[in-house]
Computed example of a mutant assay.
Amino acid sequence: MRIFLFILLFFVNLFSAQNFENSNIKCNYLTKFLIDTTDSNTKKEEITSLWIGKNISIFKSDQKARYDSLAKESARNSFQNPVNGRVILDFSKIPRAHFIPEVLKIGNKLEIFDKVLNVNYVYESDQKINWTLLNETKIISTYKCRKAVGKYHNKNMTAWYTEEIPVPEGPYTFKGLPGLVIEAYDDKDFFHFTLVKLKNVSELIAPIKNAINTDYQRFLKKRIDYQNDPAGAYFIATGRTTPKELKGKIEKMHRSNNNHLD
């Protein structure tokens, strides 16, 4: 009974909306990225979105937003319709996103939400991009754009921004320029963001709830430990052993998931 009440309170907390702002603008970006930097066949494309409010913004995958919404709906239905007195939560049939991280900006503070072994973590970004503005222009999606370059962790980034939309916003953490970022990519083109649609939208901006607070170095260690020994990390997290016949396949799959924006 106590376990059931704990789960119920968890989901009630999960579903309750926080008092965040509504967006004014929604920007859709076509995001192209590699899962495995050693294999060009692992390239993915996904629509990601940037919701911009007066003092807040959030960037995440549209598919992830749909997954979160459908998962909440499925959980509600499971609680309302238990099977033989049991609440069964099954999200396996909901299509998952490949682009996982989310970025929440409140004022000048950037928080990054990411996952390791289906556990959500949140840490404050300790990387500020010192953009260099260049005297180079081009037209992208009818917008006159100017070029800027900067370094983010170990990636050399190029951003094209437009002063026609004078908001210092952009995909992921690529913000702080004199206009909206229309296109951004790293020098190896492992990640490439291009604006495909912009419209006025009033929607609640709210981040993932119940994420574990950490810092970047601790998060990075967890991710490296998991990639080095996914079966061991799975056992520590769940107490369950990975079947021997699947161990090699699982280790190869997770080690090949090696392309990260940070």
Rank of each mutant, 00 (worst) to 15 (best):
Y172N: 13
T142Q: 14
Q127T: 00
N118P: 02
I205M: 04
T132M: 07
D215S: 11
K221V: 01
Y123D: 11
I139F: 08
P168N: 15
Y185A: 00
N135I: 02
N120G: 06
Y143H: 14
H153P: 00
Q127S: 05
T142A: 14
V119Y: 07
Q227R: 14
A206I: 06
E124Q: 12
T241A: 15
S202K: 04
Y123E: 01
I140Q: 04
A148T: 07
P230F: 05
I140L: 14
Q127K: 15
K188D: 11
V122A: 04
Y123P: 13
A206V: 02
T142Y: 09
I236F: 07
N130S: 04
I139Q: 09
V116S: 09
G170E: 10
K147Y: 03
R223I: 08
R223H: 09
T173M: 10
I212R: 05
Y226W: 08
N213A: 06
K175F: 09
Y143M: 12
T242L: 13
L177C: 02
T242E: 13
P168L: 13
Y226T: 08
E163S: 12
F193Q: 10
P166D: 04
P178I: 03
F235H: 10
P230K: 10
P178Y: 10
E169R: 08
P171A: 13
L204C: 08
R240L: 15
Q217H: 03
F219T: 11
F191T: 01
I182H: 08
N154K: 05
T158A: 02
E183Q: 14
A233Q: 13
A237Y: 14
G179N: 12
D187G: 01
Q217E: 15
K209R: 03
K175H: 13
Y172T: 14
D114M: 14
R240Q: 15
L204G: 07
K144G: 07
Q217S: 12
N200V: 00
Y121M: 02
D114L: 04
I182V: 15
K221A: 13
A184S: 11
K155V: 04
A184G: 15
R240M: 13
T162R: 08
L117F: 14
F113G: 05
Y152K: 13
V196L: 09
G232C: 00
E203F: 07
F190S: 07
F193P: 04
E124V: 14
P230G: 02
E164D: 14
M157I: 13
I129S: 05
F191P: 02
G179C: 04
N156C: 08
I205R: 00
F174R: 15
V167S: 01
Q227G: 09
I224R: 09
K197Y: 04
E164P: 00
D189P: 01
Y152V: 06
I236Y: 10
L204E: 05
K128Y: 08
K222H: 01
G179V: 11
V119D: 01
N228F: 02
T241Q: 05
R240K: 12
K138A: 10
K222Y: 05
F174A: 07
E163P: 05
